[in-house]
Simulated assay, not measured.
Amino acid sequence: MIRWVYAVIERPAGQLDAATAFWSAVTGTHRLHRDDADDWLEVREGDGGARLRFACDDVPALVAAAIRLGATTTVEPHVLRSPAGLAFEVTHWEGETRLLPAGASSHLDQVCLDVALTAYPSELDFWGELTGWQLQSFPPQFHRLVRPQGIPVQILLQCTDDGSTKAHLDIASADAEGDRRRHEALGATLVQDFPEWITMRDPAAGIYCLTRRNPRD
């Protein structure tokens, strides 16, 4: 059973300090830690995207289930790849339960899995079966895994037409334009403004989105 989900921010080795400083500032944390909530974010060396880390009661059982569903192992212990190649981790649950206090106007609460069209159906099946969470459809190109109460990070799957499969971070924002300006002052840059989200690039060159979802709802 999945007890907790982390959003892992992956950035090049030379950009880890810049990434940590930026994401600490925009999430209101001290080096991604808070005294009033359990950790739900990490920054580590990687290719500039994001990955999920699942904390569970029985690591071998979840790893075995993932492999039965089509995941493959890697050289890193308990790091696997989905059928389309998305890396994720499985670790032992250490008792994390404390969510952020309610009331923030923005919150990093989602990892979006951008999946190539040809792999999208199999990825929907894989992630739905692995988590056991209900799939919620948002035509024409999105599905969300409805996270159980008490889980800090939800999973969105987006069908892309560029042939690539990757992952990025999403921030729910009650004032996306105001947050865009605040993030730009911290070193981020605008990539493109869409009706339902704003695509940004952080100071470590990682892509993320400010989504027009009110975290207070």
Rank of each mutant, 00 (worst) to 15 (best):
Y6V: 05
V8D: 10
V8F: 06
E10L: 09
P12D: 14
G14E: 15
L16R: 03
L16A: 01
A18K: 08
T20W: 04
A21I: 06
A21P: 07
W23L: 01
A25Q: 04
A25M: 05
G28C: 05
G28S: 10
T29E: 05
T29F: 04
T29K: 04
H30T: 03
H30V: 12
R31L: 03
R31I: 05
D36V: 06
D36P: 13
A37T: 11
A37M: 06
A37H: 13
D38P: 00
D38F: 09
D39W: 12
W40A: 06
E42S: 01
E45P: 13
G46L: 15
G46P: 05
D47A: 04
D47Q: 14
D47W: 12
G48L: 14
R51W: 07
L52Y: 07
L52Q: 08
R53A: 09
R53P: 00
F54T: 01
F54I: 03
F54E: 10
A55K: 15
C56T: 07
C56P: 00
C56V: 07
D58M: 03
A61V: 06
A61P: 00
L62G: 00
A64D: 03
A64E: 10
A65G: 08
A65K: 04
A66Q: 04
A66E: 05
A66V: 10
R68I: 09
R68W: 02
L69K: 02
